[in-house]
Amino acid sequence: MTRLPIKKTYKLFVGGAFPRSESGRTYEAEGQNVARASRKDVRDAVRAARAAQPGWAGATAYNRGQVLYRLAEMVEARIPEFAELCSGRDEVERSIDRVVWYAGWADKLPQVLGGANPVAGPYFNFTIPEPTGVVAVLAPDEPPLLGLVTRLLPPLVGGNAVVAVASEQRPLAAIELAEAIATSDLPGGVVNLLTGFRSELAPVLASHMDVNALDLGAANGAAAELEQLAAENVKRIVHGGVDVQSPWEIASFLELKTVWHPIGQ
């Protein structure tokens, strides 16, 4: 007699836990019932992100690099599962390598992006990059895994917390990634993944007053409307690419802080 397999319930990833949508709604994608997040789920996710962000930013850069490297380890261990949920093994391997590449940036950013400033006076003056805070990401539809990883890692490595809306048509890779994140030592709430209808969730994120930056990677023509909403609290707007890898991607989610102190006896 063949054994009946246990099927997974696909849920959201908020604050390190896997809740259903508070709305009780689902939609069918890739043959599965997937949680259809609501405005209130966005609210909960932003709250979780805000709560988690200072701790993540406050961790040492070395520690953040190791935690993200461990995320790569967790995905590596599940390559076959991930391969089934995206275009295949190559996309998974590229995603893993991208995570490793960004993990290595954690303790190098301040030296590349900041420095000491030679002001004309008896002052020591330096500029350092700091995370902007809570970042909302609209992940590209395709490729479902690499696209999400490409948009997720730049804000993360700089010390931000993220609320991401997964690919609407192909959300399963995102949920699989959430499971890898949950076992990667990334503190709960640093990454929050919502599945659902982008047209419903994006305006809520764009107008949310406790979101600091908005990555419009997959806004698909709705960018103007979302950018208008985002102006209400002067959000930083990023038009993220689907397959790019650069420290300047990280920089677009960073603020620069300059500190002055007199020099004297």
């Binding site: 400033n117 004309a120 006076g121 500029t127 620069l256 802080k257 300059t258 002055w260 102190h261 007199p262």
Partner: peptide, 18 residues
Amino acid sequence: AGVVWANTFNRFDPSSPF
């Protein structure tokens, strides 16, 4: 805040990001 002045205030310089 983008600029922090410690034991001074309202200092500006072309080489100092603001």
